[in-house]
Simulated assay, not measured.
Amino acid sequence: MNYIIVFLVLTFLSIIYLKLADKLNIIDKPNHRSSHTSPTIRGGGILFFLAILIFFVSSGFQYPYFVLGVSLIAIVSFVDDIITLSSSFRLPFQFLAIVLCLYQIGYSPNDLLVLIPLLIVGVGFINIYNFMDGINGITGLYSIVSLLGILLINSKENIIDNNLIVYSLMSLVVFGFYNFRKKARMFAGDIGSISIAVLLFFIGVYFIKELKAPVIILLVAVYGADTILTIIYRKSIGESLTQAHRLHIYQKMVHTLNLSHLKVSTIYVLIQMIINTIVYYTYDLKISYQYLIIVLVSLILTVFYYFMFKSVEKIK
């Protein structure tokens, strides 16, 4: 399908959703954990899911198991955006979505020793990606940068249909029109962050398997480091992981350093762009070198997180 047509369709769908969400009161109201101060349309990330559906139909129904998986989790997440579902209800659908992605990639029950760790990592990843949503621009801009890294590699290696990546990028740009601003008109919601997370997991694992390139995991390194280190810190102080908080570095930069949402999102994006450049030039190296790069980047991000956290705490 022509890219201009797809972009116009997604733009039209965004206008329709904005009006429907307002009429149906799908609104995110501020609470003590929120980084926004006024009610805002929730669930705008439905555009990411719709972009995947547009690709699915226009491509002759490619990757049906992946699309089924992302559809299941998108529907559940959208319901959760409206009425709030328990984690015990959401979790089985998350596992099922990851199972379908892994089956689409080519794994089978015979790969049990690989499947179990990938299942745990997959469910953990989509929840980590969901946790990081919270300030204007961060989910959209960060996802664009991660997908651009994937697009560059795919343009050389031709692992998957490029249109899946391009249509998703278009949906992020359209969403960005409403979200990449001082006062956002819509938030991605769980349907947005989780749908894009399933997409990134599917493509990422596919690339790692086909290219034998574990360094691909660094395409989401900044998000991963922030969330994992924040979880470790919260556990160390005995705080419940289900409790609302403002302990992510990006939240501290906004609420303690008083930096704007878009400035903080841009900082995260620029760091990830540097890492993406490293990934692009190293994904075809020997695996031992790739693991070394993963360890070095992880250590650098950990040290950066530690000193940023301590600096912000002193100001507080």
Results as ranks from 00 to 15, higher is better:
Asn2Gln: 08
Ile4Leu: 15
Ile4Thr: 14
Val6Lys: 00
Leu8Glu: 03
Val9Pro: 03
Ser14Leu: 06
Ser14Phe: 08
Leu18Tyr: 15
Leu20Glu: 01
Lys23Arg: 15
Ile27Cys: 07
Ile27Ser: 05
Asp28Glu: 09
Asn31Gly: 05
Asn31Trp: 05
Arg33Asp: 01
His36Gln: 10
Ser38Tyr: 12
Arg42Ile: 08
Gly43Cys: 07
Gly44Asp: 03
Phe48Trp: 04
Phe48Pro: 06
Phe49Trp: 14
Ile54Arg: 00
Phe55Asp: 00
Phe55Tyr: 13
Ser58Phe: 14
Gly60Glu: 08
Phe61Asn: 04
Pro64Met: 12
Phe66Val: 06
Phe66Ile: 08
Val67Arg: 02
Leu68Phe: 14
Leu68Tyr: 08
Val70Ser: 07
Leu72Gln: 01
Ile73Ser: 01
Ala74Thr: 09
Ile75Thr: 11
Ile75His: 02
Val76Phe: 15
Val76Asn: 02
Ser77Lys: 09
Phe78Asp: 00
Val79Thr: 07
Val79Tyr: 13
Val79Glu: 00
Asp81Ala: 08
Ser88Phe: 12
Ser88Cys: 01
Leu91Gly: 00
Phe95Gly: 01
Leu100Phe: 13
Cys101Pro: 02
Ile105Asp: 00
Gly106Asp: 00
Gly106Trp: 02
Tyr107Pro: 05
Asn110Gly: 14
Asp111Arg: 08
Leu113Ala: 12
Leu115Ser: 05
Leu115Arg: 04
Leu119Ile: 08
Gly122Ile: 07
Gly124Lys: 06
Asn127Val: 05
Ile128His: 03
Asp133Trp: 13
Ile138Tyr: 10
Tyr142Ser: 13
Ser143Phe: 10
Ser143Ile: 06
Ile144Gln: 10
Leu147Pro: 05
Leu148Ile: 15
Leu151Tyr: 14
Leu151Asn: 04
Asn154Leu: 04
Lys156Trp: 09
Lys156Arg: 14
Asn158Ser: 14
Ile160Gln: 03
Ile160Arg: 06
Val166Met: 07
Ser168Val: 03
Ser168Asp: 00
Leu169Arg: 06
Leu169Met: 11
Leu172Trp: 05
Leu172Cys: 09
Phe175Arg: 03
Arg181Asp: 01
Lys183Cys: 03
Ala188Ser: 15
Ile191Trp: 03
Ser193Arg: 07
Ser195Arg: 06
Ala197Ile: 04
Ala197His: 02
Val198Lys: 04
Phe201Ser: 03
Gly204Lys: 06
Gly204Tyr: 06
Tyr206Ser: 11
Phe207Asp: 01
Pro214Cys: 12
Leu218Ala: 12
Ala221Asn: 03
Val222Met: 05
Tyr223Gly: 00
Gly224Ala: 15
Asp226Met: 09
Leu229Arg: 10
Ile231Lys: 02
Ile232His: 04
Arg234Lys: 13
Lys235Phe: 12
Glu239Gly: 05
His245Ala: 09
His248Cys: 11
Leu257Trp: 13
Leu259Pro: 01
Leu259Phe: 14
His261Leu: 10
Leu262Val: 08
Lys263Met: 09
Val264Tyr: 12
Thr266Met: 14
Thr266Asp: 01
Gln272Arg: 09
Ile275Asp: 02
Val279Trp: 13
Tyr281Leu: 14
Tyr283Trp: 12
Asp284His: 15
Ile287Lys: 10
Gln290Leu: 11
Tyr291Met: 09
Ile294Ser: 08
Val297Cys: 12
Leu301Arg: 03
Val303Asn: 03
Phe304Leu: 15
Tyr305Pro: 09
Met308Gln: 11
Phe309His: 12
Ile315Ala: 09
